[in-house]
């Protein structure tokens, strides 16, 4: 495996709510190697987006704060860096693509201006040079007729085109790490497939690491090398994508896999995980998944479950994983 580009260790993030400081991300560790794609998977509210924003230290402060852990990029600790040092990294070495391209692009400026801006910020080039670079990346993300489209405003683009433009903006300074937070969720399925294809081919050409945040296991199977599954602010399982799909080691992962619609199974009811995820201020004792877990025993509710290292980059947070035979997906 390649040397880790990004290493997150024991990350804890808290938000100030009516219930006091609430820990929404707790003890999350993962790494992304150069040229590797790590999927960060979980339901809404599992803490995956907060985790991804924490890497860039873009969680809103207040009410959020990073309460502990370590985030290292190329071996350099990012927590505790000054604003200036962080700003020098953002958009340059680490870039981000967000979910809603309609709202994440500024409606008041042209696409070209918004792409050029990041180039001028980090490369210190003139407006004209920045525009040349903007044209290059628009071409890279396969926007047809970039010369004509560069002066368009976001509302003049379709959803898929806007997301391509957002990706172009992220790639403008050749980042080593791309953090993509549900970049295809808001798109039509066909457009979604195009954007995923684009990301895959761009990664092959540019060799960047990708941290891909999604709730969609289908997308994970399509794009990712390894997967970290999060539940209720904690990581419950990490594995490479084939192992995870073939033999999940955590009942939650199994539930997610069962809940995936499969072709050729018409008429069959989709399996759903019963219940809802807990609120961050009323986390259950013991294993956080036990109230919804079909395999839960009395002991699951009592003692806190540690992350169990299974070797070969696999780990799980289930005390019964050895005895359970969990079902994968084809």
């Amino acid at each position: 495996m390649s040397a880790p580009l990004l290493e997150v260790e024991d990350l804890a993030v808290e938000f100030l709510t009516d219930h006091g400081w609430v820990r929404v991300v707790d003890g999350v560790s993962f790494s992304v190697g150069a040229g590797e794609t790590l999927g960060l998977v979980g339901e809404s509210g599992s803490g995956k987006t907060v985790t991804s924003l924490s890497v860039m230290q873009l969680i809103p402060r207040p009410p959020g704060r990073i309460a502990g852990g370590s985030i290292r990029f190329e071996g350099r600790e990012l927590l505790g860096l000054s604003d200036q040092e962080l700003e020098a990294l953002r958009g340059e070495a680490i870039a981000m693509v967000f979910q809603e391209s309609m709202t994440s692009l500024n409606p008041a400026f042209t696409i070209g201006d918004q792409i050029g801006e990041v180039v001028r910020r980090h490369r210190g080039v003139s407006r004209r040079e920045a525009r040349v670079r903007a044209l290059e990346v628009l071409e890279l993300v396969q926007i047809p007729d970039p010369e004509a489209r560069i002066d368009a405003y976001p509302h003049e683009f379709s959803g898929g085109m806007r997301q391509r433009a957002a990706i172009a903006m992220a790639l403008a300074c050749d980042p080593k790490l791309l953090i993509a937070d549900e970049p295809t969720t808001a798109l039509d399925v066909t457009v979604q497939a195009q954007v995923l294809d684009l990301l895959r081919s761009l990664q092959q050409r540019l060799g960047m690491g990708i941290l891909f945040v999604t709730h969609n296991l289908g997308v994970v199977a399509d794009l990712c090398d390894r997967v970290t599954v999060m539940y209720a602010g904690r990581m419950v399982e990490t594995a490479n994508v084939f192992d995870l799909f073939e033999s999940p080691q955590h009942p939650y992962t199994e539930g997610l896999l069962q809940a995936m619609p499969q072709l050729g199974e018409r008429g069959k009811r989709l399996a759903a995980i019963p219940g809802t995820p807990p609120m961050p201020w009323q986390m259950p004792d013991g294993c956080r998944f036990h109230p919804r877990c079909p395999y839960a025993e009395a002991a699951c509710a009592e003692q806190d479950v540690k992350l169990d290292d299974l070797g070969e980059g696999r780990s799980t947070r289930c005390r019964r994983h050895a005895e359970l035979k969990l079902e994968g997906a084809e």
Binding site: G91, S104, L105, N106
Partner: peptide, 12 residues
């Protein structure tokens, strides 16, 4: 969101 995007670009 576009303010967050602008910050993610490294603007001060």
């Amino acid at each position: 969101d576009y303010i967050r995007t602008a910050r993610a670009k490294g603007l001060a």
